[in-house]
Simulated assay, not measured.
Amino acid sequence: MIRRLLTVCVAGLLGALAVGSPALAHGADAPDGTDYRTSVTTLAPALPGLTVRAVEAGARLELTNRTGRTVEVLGYAGEPYLEVRPDGVYENRNSPATYLNRTLDGDTEPPAGTDPTLPPSWQRIGTEPVARWHDQRTHWLEEAPPEQVRADPDRTHRIRDWTVPLRDGVTPIELHGTLDWLPPPSPGPWWLVSLVGALALGTLGLLPAGTRRGRLVTATLAGGFALAGAGAVAFAVARELDAGADGLGGVTQGLLAGQIWPLLTGLGALAAGAYALARRPAADFALALSGACLALFAGVANAAVFGRSVAPVPWPGTSARVLVAAMIVIGVGGTLAGVLRLRAVERDAPGAGGVVHRDAAAGDQPRAAAATGSNP
């Protein structure tokens, strides 16, 4: 039974590694990484209580209105698009931007009759004075990179300085920002380091568990799982913070809604590490199963950062890549080590054609002496 479960886990892990696709994302179209950096620079004029920032690795703008007044976001034809009022957010059903901004790619066709020259038809879409939306003025929408990037892809390029018009009553406000291309790293070296490190860690499972070195390996794996589990939880929390989650309640709600599997994976790795450190029965099985989940849901799921310059976390891209590589190393390596140890136990079990190894330090008599009836 144990061998069958582990076979399924390892097969799924190897399949995911072969495909190499990041399976999980925070939202429906939130990027797992990008090579374009969207930055908010200034509000002109500044308005106390009004703040705007880029969230979800620059995929959305977030406007928070604590002024006590209504602030409008204007659409692509200068029409009212959003109103952020003290009692919530309203969108204009007659504005084409309402539909074009549904997705990051801007590929939603506005329904017939949509006309920016018509009087606004407001519909409430939120109860807090906080609006988040995709804005085509802040993105590069083409699949191919800009001409200057194609000519010299190894340099940072300023794609454009962008402006999003706002309005406070009749007073115009301009939101200014920048869009830059950042050269992406090569994913090959990161995958190579991850897989070689995982194989090296996995081979430690060849050491017999009952020996001094074997116990040291168990302690090392337990410590690694504790660190990787904490890293998985931290990465999930960081994705929520980058997506605009505010406060403990906002982060918790975001984790439960969009990061539940990475969160459970991280907590499971912490538990498996503690279980192994306590030398509980079936600790090797716990490490193998938890390691497979860690590699899949926290490592491979976020591996897009290996080939993207901007990671969906509020950290430098290199820090995100190091953490993801560590989770893959410990997850895959822990799975291999657990499988090797479990196979050794099956091989040496009575009735399996092997020999049961006893730990003399634990007070067991050597089998040979017991068989002959001699005193130890």
Rank of each mutant, 00 (worst) to 15 (best):
G106Y: 01
G106S: 07
T108R: 13
E109A: 14
P110G: 09
P111Y: 11
P111C: 11
P111D: 11
A112R: 12
A112K: 11
A112S: 14
T114S: 04
T114F: 01
D115M: 11
P116G: 09
P116A: 11
T117D: 08
L118I: 06
P120K: 11
P120N: 10
P120F: 10
P120R: 12
S121G: 10
W122E: 07
W122H: 09
Q123D: 11
Q123A: 15
R124M: 08
R124Y: 02
R124H: 05
I125V: 15
I125C: 06
I125H: 05
I125N: 03
G126D: 14
P129Y: 00
V130D: 06
V130N: 10
V130K: 02
A131D: 01
R132P: 02
R132W: 03
R132H: 02
W133Y: 13
H134I: 04
D135I: 00
R137E: 08
R137P: 05
R137K: 06
R137N: 09
T138G: 04
H139V: 00
H139G: 03
H139Q: 13
W140R: 00
W140D: 00
E142T: 10
E142P: 11
E142W: 11
E142I: 03
A144K: 14
A144Q: 14
A144F: 09
Q148C: 07
V149R: 10
V149F: 05
V149I: 05
V149S: 08
D152R: 15
D152M: 10
D152Q: 13
D152E: 15
D152K: 12
D154F: 10
R155Y: 08
I159D: 05
R160A: 04
D161A: 08
D161K: 05
W162L: 00
W162N: 01
W162G: 02
W162I: 00
W162F: 02
T163E: 12
T163M: 08
T163L: 07
V164M: 02
P165F: 04
P165R: 07
P165D: 14
P165H: 05
L166Q: 05
R167Y: 07
D168F: 12
G169R: 13
G169M: 14
G169T: 12
T171H: 13
P172G: 14
P172W: 02
I173N: 06
I173D: 10
E174R: 15
E174N: 10
E174W: 09
L175R: 00
L175A: 07
L175K: 00
L175E: 01
H176K: 12
G177Y: 00
T178A: 09
